[in-house]
Simulated assay, not measured.
Amino acid sequence: MTDFVSAEWVASQGEGIRIVDVRDAWEYDGLGHLPNAVSVPFDSFRADEHGTESDADAGEGMLPDEDDWAQLLSEAGVSPESDIVAYDDHHGVFAARFLVTAELFGHDPARLHLLDGDFSSWQLERETSSETPAVEPTDYELTRPDATPLVGPDAVADAADDPDAVLVDTREDGEYDEGHIPGAVLLDWRALVDDETRGLLPQDEARSVLERAGIVPEKRIVLYCNTARRISHTYVVLRHLGFEQVDFYEGSLTEWEAQGRPLETN
């Protein structure tokens, strides 16, 4: 499963991993980056607009086109056998989106890793580089998995009434109060982030935060936000902590509202 890895682990791997920097290209070029990291900016793997009706039925939401994704990884020197570490400078939320996209498109989750911390925390104690590594392009072949955590809006609506499920809104308090899917509990994704280390809270603390929101491993967890970016981070956290039943509403509120479905306000 996709997991968190320490800066020490990343530094110890040498060139045995593919490190992916998802910050803007100007940050990669102008501010430096992790040694041997390749640049794959967030905007390059974000769909420009909401998907088609058929995409919505399949739970595709804002995922990029398959061919575009495969070309992007090929140009970054990634193969299906690559171990990938992704990072950003926003506590890992954009990097998590990259990794979840890779998982949904069939990359082995055991080979997907999120840097515990971000660029700012890395550069406090470790060297950075201004050199762009030479990359040998691959011919990345995408193989869709037999099953994914993706769910559509009907399944999300059903989860709100299911005693064995918890529907989770990972946005900010104010957004939640203005309108959320009926029956959803609030868990701001940043509640699982340690402001000092810029990485994941210690695991015991993270579990306590989750339990207070009623999010426990025994339940099926269904995640949504606005455009599936913030739930990507929460998804990686939950899987890292051993949660086995985590559903991912890719369409999120963008799709939910476009379909005229009801919202609840506080």
Rank of each mutant, 00 (worst) to 15 (best):
G61K: 00
M62N: 10
M62R: 12
L63P: 00
L63N: 00
D65G: 02
W69R: 08
A70G: 10
Q71K: 13
Q71A: 13
Q71R: 14
L73G: 03
S74R: 04
S74I: 07
A76S: 12
A76N: 07
G77D: 02
V78K: 08
V78D: 05
E81Q: 15
E81K: 15
S82Q: 05
S82G: 02
D83Q: 13
I84R: 05
I84N: 05
I84H: 06
V85N: 01
A86E: 00
D88C: 05
D88Y: 02
D88R: 00
D88A: 04
D89V: 11
D89W: 08
D89L: 08
H90F: 14
H90I: 13
H91L: 11
H91W: 14
G92Y: 01
G92Q: 04
G92M: 02
F94A: 11
F94Q: 12
F94N: 11
A95L: 06
A95Q: 05
A96T: 03
A96N: 01
R97W: 02
F98D: 01
T101C: 06
T101W: 03
T101D: 03
A102K: 00
E103D: 11
E103K: 08
E103R: 09
F105L: 09
G106I: 05
H107I: 14
P109C: 12
A110F: 07
A110D: 15
R111A: 14
R111F: 09
L114D: 00
L114E: 04
D116P: 00
D116M: 01
G117V: 06
S120R: 11
S120M: 10
S120H: 12
S120C: 04
Q123E: 15
L124N: 12
R126W: 11
R126N: 15
T128S: 13
T128N: 08
T132R: 13
T132P: 02
T132N: 07
A134P: 02
E136G: 04
P137R: 08
T138S: 13
T138Y: 07
T138H: 10
T138P: 03
Y140S: 10
E141S: 13
L142M: 11
L142E: 03
L142T: 12
R144H: 10
P145R: 07
L150M: 13
V151I: 15
G152L: 06
P153V: 10
A155S: 14
A155H: 11
A157C: 07
D158E: 15
A160G: 01
A160I: 00
A160S: 04
D162S: 07
D164Q: 14
D164G: 15
D164T: 13
V166A: 12
L167P: 02
V168W: 03
D169S: 09
T170R: 05
T170K: 03
R171E: 05
E172C: 04
D173W: 06
D173M: 05
E175N: 05
E175C: 01
D177S: 12
D177M: 10
E178D: 14
H180C: 05
H180V: 01
I181M: 10
I181L: 13
I181K: 09
P182G: 09
P182M: 08
G183R: 02
G183F: 00
G183L: 01
